[in-house]
Nucleic acid binder design. Structure first.
Lengths: 230, 230
DNA sequence: GTAATACTGAGAACAGCGATCGCAGTATTG
DNA sequence: CAATACTGCGATCGCTGTTCTCAGTATTAC
């Protein structure tokens, strides 16, 4: 009943018999990441990656068995950018908030992470990150399963705030801007009084809450809520 | 400097001159939704939709100008499934929690909503939903811009929990299952002690927190946190 | 030392995708 | 009744991920 391996990391990078491969998963991955940083996820096509490496699309399938594999590799690779060292404060909330903040920075640096089809498969480096978070959660009295769910929630908050932060960053070329202009014209005074009121304020005039501050506040609040109440 | 309209709803459904269209945006939309409910977002291709309607792919472009338009229409259409009537409790937190819960149900009924490329453009029905939430937020002292951000946060929480709820629902055919089995084999005792410990518990054995309860708790906590502190 | 084996690289090709063009047909306008 | 502005849609373009196939090469076994 042994099934074939499902993740990239279950499959060996290369066999032992034939000629040495001219490239490596690492090279594919970094080329793909560079492409994604420049042109977003759509730029990461087999042909584009192959061109970057000076080879043909078919050759890539010697290293990975599907495009999804490549995306998994990319997601795991950038996880290494998260610095896992932190002063052992002993306060889980503080530690987790710090780690989450660093993770958010990675998302800001690689916005395509937000466009990944599904939550990416956890790879070796993601495992180290997971491990670090679980260590930070150790002083708590949370059940093991709840800890995993807490991590999921934390992750979700990170992506959530990363998304709004990115949206605000270049709100000029934002596709949401189209929605906004549509809303302004389509919201009728009598049918949508509150909406028209909310839209009437020129955005940014009113001191908009600093997103990162809000993020830290939210993370701490959620975490303390989760940790202190059983 | 007037630019051409950006959203579907800015474009007229049909002109006044020629023969009456044999189909309507409504028909396209419901056909697409049915396809998505059955086979997920990938099943919603121009060709498939066209086949459903007994026509050719090219014909669809008489009603919409891009596939994205269709997705926008779909997202807006299912918004109508959210019941906006609720006993005017006057308590913003309670009202919002109820509305968010109903929105989550819609996500559970149409899982493809979670796979939509970007946050969908708000359409007419989405506007009604927005309006309703803003009305619920009226008693608060939040600034107008903060209200919009609160809605974004609330939306994010909904998608977050909908995602985990769906994941748990059919955890058998879950792609994350592959990750799990990989994690179990790859987590080494000395390098990932906490991870191996967390994974050693058979999932579900320990009374897993009811997700919906956790959702309601989280929503209330976040909302009170946002509303009570300026 | 040679034959068998197991691998690598890559050109060609396939099915499916979103989208466009151009043309025949039709209802409305002036 | 002609001019106009629309609709339906077959053909087609360029793109995508992926597979087939086969020549070439390094390793292993005898």
């Amino acid at each position: 009943m042994a099934e074939e391996p499902k993740t990239v990391w279950d499959r060996p990078e290369r066999g032992a018999r034939g000629p040495a491969p001219e490239r490596s998963r690492r090279e594919l991955t970094s080329a793909a990441i560079r492409l994604a940083d420049e042109g977003g996820l759509p730029a990461v096509s087999m042909r584009q990656v192959a061109k970057r490496l000076g080879t043909g699309p078919a050759s890539l399938y010697r290293y990975i068995s599907t495009r999804g594999d490549l995306l998994d590799l990319m997601a795991d690779a950038v996880t290494s950018e998260i610095d896992l060292d932190l002063p052992s404060s002993g306060d889980p909330v503080e530690d987790l908030a710090t780690l989450a903040g660093r993770q958010k920075q990675v998302y800001l640096r690689h916005p395509w992470l937000l466009d990944l089809p599904t939550e990416p498969t956890v790879g070796p480096l993601g495992m180290d990150y997971l491990e670090r978070i679980l260590r930070a959660l150790e002083p708590t009295s949370l059940s093991r399963s709840t800890r995993l769910e807490t991590i999921g929630l934390l992750n979700g908050l990170v992506t959530l705030f990363a998304r709004t932060e990115l949206r605000r960053r270049h709100s000029s070329s934002d596709p949401a801007q189209a929605t906004m202009s549509y809303l302004v014209t389509a919201a009728t005074e009598e049918r949508h009084p509150f909406l028209t009121a909310a839209l009437s304020d020129s955005p940014g005039t009113e001191a908009a809450q600093d997103t990162h501050t809000l993020f830290e506040r939210m993370v701490r609040r959620v975490l303390t809520g989760l940790i202190e109440t059983p």
